Amino acid sequence: MTSFPSDESVALASPAALRALIESRRSVRRFTAEAVPDEVIRDCLGMAVLAPNSCNLQPWSFQVIRDEALRQRLVPVCMGQNAAKAPLLIAVLARPDTWREACDKVLEYWPQEKIPEITRKFYSGTAQFQYNQGPFGLLGLFKRQLVRIVGLRRALMRKPNSRADMRIWAVKSTALAAENLMLAFQSHGYATCPMEGFDEVRLRKVLDLPRQAIPIMILAVGRQGEKGVYNSRLRFPLEQHVTWL
Score class of each variant (00 low, 15 high):
71 R>V: 06
240 Q>L: 11
173 S>G: 05
14 S>Y: 09
128 Q>K: 10
82 N>G: 00
163 R>Y: 11
91 A>Y: 01
149 I>R: 13
122 F>K: 04
223 R>C: 13
21 L>M: 08
171 V>W: 04
151 G>Y: 13
185 F>D: 00
44 C>N: 03
153 R>V: 00
204 R>Y: 02
99 W>Q: 01
137 G>E: 13
68 E>T: 05
129 F>R: 08
210 P>N: 04
166 M>G: 05
233 R>I: 00
147 V>E: 14
120 R>C: 14
184 A>L: 03
90 I>W: 10
75 V>E: 13
203 L>I: 06
179 E>A: 15
117 E>C: 08
129 F>S: 03
103 C>P: 02
84 A>Y: 04
19 R>V: 06
225 G>E: 05
199 D>E: 11
32 T>M: 02
39 E>W: 14
234 L>W: 15
105 K>Q: 08
231 N>L: 12
206 V>G: 00
52 P>W: 04
176 L>K: 09
244 W>I: 06
55 C>L: 04
17 A>Y: 09
161 N>V: 07
49 V>W: 11
110 W>G: 06
107 L>H: 02
85 K>M: 05
168 I>M: 11
151 G>K: 08
182 M>N: 07
61 S>A: 10
50 L>D: 15
3 S>T: 08
46 G>P: 06
43 D>S: 05
200 E>R: 10
104 D>E: 08
244 W>G: 01
13 A>P: 04
69 A>V: 12
2 T>K: 03
109 Y>K: 06
29 R>V: 00
23 E>D: 14
196 E>M: 11
170 A>W: 04
106 V>K: 02
155 A>Y: 15
124 S>L: 07
144 R>I: 00
188 H>R: 09
